[in-house]
Amino acid sequence: MKTGQLTSIAASLADEWISLAIGKIGGANIKVIKMGGEGIPDEVHPDFDELLVVIQGYMQLVVDNETFSLQEGEYFLVSQGSVHRVLPGSYGTLLLVDVDSPPHSAPF
């Protein structure tokens, strides 16, 4: 069994938007990310959905040209094939669940 404090894990990360995998369930990766800085440019995952959960802080997410403001405790399930990005000004701790993807895909 593993246990940990997600905001402490994110705070210990040296860089923003570089994920740390804390586990795997089936084919799904569970990642912690420190949000901040300039956000993330457009990306798309043609073969899988991606779950984004704001653990602490605030995130502005644009999905298929519609903007969503997510507060602590809120989540967004990005459908496969949807173009999405995170806007500058987003900050805090993000939990991300996705599947293994090629190294060239996204900074997440």
Rank of each mutant, 00 (worst) to 15 (best):
1 M>R: 07
1 M>L: 10
2 K>Q: 11
3 T>Q: 13
4 G>K: 14
4 G>V: 13
4 G>F: 11
7 T>A: 14
7 T>Q: 13
9 I>E: 08
9 I>T: 13
9 I>P: 08
10 A>D: 10
10 A>I: 12
10 A>C: 13
11 A>E: 15
11 A>W: 05
12 S>L: 04
12 S>D: 07
13 L>P: 15
13 L>H: 08
14 A>F: 00
14 A>Y: 00
14 A>Q: 05
15 D>V: 03
15 D>G: 00
15 D>L: 00
16 E>G: 01
17 W>R: 03
17 W>T: 03
17 W>G: 02
18 I>C: 04
18 I>A: 06
19 S>L: 07
21 A>V: 14
21 A>S: 07
22 I>V: 15
23 G>K: 07
23 G>R: 09
23 G>C: 07
25 I>D: 03
26 G>W: 00
26 G>N: 08
27 G>R: 01
28 A>K: 02
29 N>Y: 14
29 N>C: 07
30 I>N: 09
31 K>S: 12
32 V>F: 01
34 K>F: 05
35 M>K: 01
37 G>K: 00
37 G>F: 10
37 G>Y: 09
37 G>A: 09
38 E>I: 11
40 I>S: 05
41 P>K: 05
41 P>N: 08
42 D>T: 00
45 H>Q: 05
47 D>A: 05
47 D>V: 02
47 D>S: 06
47 D>C: 05
50 E>V: 04
50 E>M: 02
50 E>R: 01
50 E>A: 03
51 L>T: 02
52 L>D: 06
52 L>M: 10
52 L>N: 12
53 V>D: 03
54 V>K: 07
54 V>H: 06
55 I>E: 08
56 Q>D: 14
59 M>N: 00
59 M>K: 00
60 Q>N: 15
61 L>T: 15
62 V>W: 11
62 V>E: 10
63 V>L: 12
63 V>P: 03
64 D>R: 07
66 E>H: 12
66 E>G: 10
66 E>F: 05
68 F>L: 11
68 F>R: 08
69 S>Q: 12
69 S>K: 11
69 S>V: 09
70 L>N: 01
71 Q>H: 13
71 Q>C: 09
72 E>D: 13
74 E>T: 10
74 E>K: 10
74 E>M: 12
75 Y>S: 15
76 F>L: 03
78 V>F: 00
79 S>I: 08
80 Q>D: 14
82 S>P: 08
83 V>G: 02
84 H>Q: 02
84 H>C: 01
85 R>G: 09
85 R>K: 12
85 R>W: 07
87 L>E: 15
88 P>K: 05
89 G>E: 02
89 G>K: 06
89 G>A: 03
94 L>S: 02
94 L>Q: 03
94 L>R: 02
98 D>C: 15
98 D>F: 11
100 D>W: 00
102 P>I: 10
103 P>H: 04
104 H>P: 00
105 S>G: 09
105 S>H: 14
106 A>P: 15
108 F>Q: 04
108 F>M: 05
